[in-house]
Design a protein around this nucleic acid. Structure first.
Lengths: 354, 354
DNA sequence: CTCCGTTGCTGAAAGGTTTCAAGGAGATTG
DNA sequence: CAATCTCCTTGAAACCTTTCAGCAACGGAG
């Protein structure tokens, strides 16, 4: 898989002088003062056209690069937002990120993406790092919504907005989609189709999305008057395609009389893996097993059997979150908000058949 | 799709004091000098256990957060790498990113991800930003490999490693997979299956991956003694699923006698979109149209018709690139390298049939 | 010819950290 | 008891930029 490593050697080591041209050098070269150079950089309208031209020319020829650390240290503010995402490999989150980027760009800010990869330790490390960097604000889809950092950051002045999770501790805004409702809708759909023994595939159970959707599923079951035991839980150790395949293996291995006739997966990656595995083991979808996913990522519709899923307004989620963050850092009488969107069932072949 | 926006208002505006506890305050609280606090932070082994405990306790109770801008300004070095990726929504690049993260983490560095989204302007903006931030190094899969920034950054002291593209201007290392070979292999496979009129789906044509793979395809065609005109180009405006669908629409609309019997797509996203559209328009894959993708992302195997693709060692690509970058910034007699991996054909149903 | 308002430029101070030469306190040796 | 040595700690200088009060020059109004 990873063979021939044909090194095409290339010598010539660049001179490692960070030539260190600073405003001072530019000022000297242009024959003006420090302050003027700074004005060219920050308030060009205060500088006469001829002087500005001289300065810009000097910058150009010296290869001047503004030192952002120094700028930020003195000016006190950063022009950067960060989105700390749960899983960069899940298209759902990259779509959210796109919404964030669009909103940030509009406000003249840049976005750095960080990937916690469902690991609470990494998440904590990144939060520390971002706080130290004094970024203008942090958007996060948390692995661990109870991390103390989620409250200490805002308390110390770094605004935090929680995305795709509702948290109501008064320290930040949050933008979420009603996951309990989503779970309920998904299961109601399966029940309506006549299924009574249904698998819930998801995990790890410390992730809020997983438990909320499960709770919704249970509620739907209860409302339909079915015993709670009819929801068979298959716990996975991550929300990935590979884990979905593993679950498929386990599920297909169940004796027919105990095997569920439908599966509700905590996200589309799991559903796609489950689907793939079940199909390759000879189960027919939806006849032998109906499958419903969650998120409606773009790949859901292109799957072996087009996947029924619960759609969330991904980009809007990100855009809204970024706007709240911007408001928080710009507006002195910002009030924390909890915005909730409503999910939407998208029915395709994997449950309804053709 | 994006309805009910139930704002659950929450007042209580956090006091916006970035309480500004600095080393100075910590020193005062702990009854030691500035220098000692700094030593606790940077060379704890030089500080006696009792003093260290006092200082740490003071930090804790003051909620001290180190100001990274100031640290970096004085110390001159950053502990951050950045990966500027072509498309964060393409799982291929997030897998590369994972490889980078693993290698960086091992070296005690953090990675910020930036998404140029196939936009040369964004790419340039991010490169400027990263240089100003004085990150320790930049990994990039460029939209525009001819951007002057790709040489000015290293010349001024910010190491740059090019990922998934071979560039040989002596200013940086690069790690790539032989895309020409990959294109050749893909097309040879189709030709071997008896196809003679073949579509090449890809674009925009300023992206190197697109042109290299096309060139490989042409070479294979020539080698097989087929006229160049037998490769029908369908140019897309991005390497996305949606664009793939569009290409499918166009392709299916061709009169039967002119319609290719196989399609080679510049990446899997295009191939998945193409596949989905063609299937939904009633074409059988591979009987009416064989399809081959590129990258072998995880979703390729789970597609409506499991997709034949050209696999690249994604994580290894990232890991190798990060290691080269680390060497460049740590090792004074670093020599630029050009590492090339070999792609591998993975045959599935979309070309071979069942 | 003086006064005043504009416009454009200056230069010192400040921001929080790290570094480093130097000093101090105890312990050890002769 | 003096001389050394070790081990810790100290405080000022430096990193590069932005800010801001103030100065100079100029033109127009009276």
């Amino acid at each position: 898989m990873a063979p021939g490593r044909a090194a095409g050697g290339r010598a010539r080591n660049g001179v490692p002088i960070r030539s260190a041209a600073g405003v001072k050098d530019v000022a000297a070269a242009a024959g003006v003062s420090l302050g003027t150079v700074s004005n060219v950089l920050n308030r060009p309208e205060l500088v006469s056209t001829t002087t500005r031209a001289k300065v810009e020319q000097a910058m150009e020829s010296l290869g001047f690069v503004r030192n952002e650390s120094a700028r930020q240290l003195r000016a006190g503010s950063s022009r950067i937002l960060a989105y700390l995402m749960l899983d960069a490999g899940n298209p759902f989150f990259t779509d959210v990120a796109r919404g964030i980027e669009d909103a940030a760009r509009e406000a003249g800010l840049s976005v750095f993406l960080c990937n916690s990869n469902e690991d609470a330790g990494r998440e904590a490390d990144y939060l520390d790092l971002l706080e130290q960097q004094r970024v203008q604000g942090v958007l996060i889809t948390p692995v661990d919504p109870d991390s103390s950092r989620l409250t200490t950051l805002p308390a110390r002045g770094t605004p935090v907005v929680v995305v795709d999770r509702a948290i109501d501790d008064g320290e930040h805004c949050s933008v979420a989609v009603d996951d309990v409702l989503g779970g309920e809708v998904a299961l109601a759909h399966l029940i309506e189709l006549g299924h009574t023994r249904i698998a819930y595939v998801g995990g790890p159970t410390n992730i809020g999305q997983v438990t909320d959707r499960r709770q919704g599923a249970r509620q739907a079951l209860e409302r339909a008057g079915l015993p709670a035991g009819n929801l068979v839980e298959l716990v996975t150790s991550a929300l990935t395609v590979a884990e979905g395949r593993g679950a498929g293996q386990r599920l297909a291995g169940l004796p027919l009389e105990r095997r569920p006739t439908a599966a509700f997966c905590a996200n589309d990656l799991l559903a796609l893996g489950l689907l793939q595995q079940c199909v390759s083991l000879g189960l027919r979808v939806p006849e032998d097993l109906a499958i419903i996913g969650y998120d409606d990522i773009e790949f859901a519709a292109a799957a072996a059997v087009p996947l029924t899923s619960v759609r969330q307004p991904r980009q809007l989620l990100g855009k809204t979150a970024a706007e709240l963050l911007l408001d928080e850092s710009a507006n002195p009488d910002h009030e924390h908000q909890r915005v909730t969107f409503t999910p939407e069932l998208v029915v395709r072949t994997s449950t309804r058949g053709t």
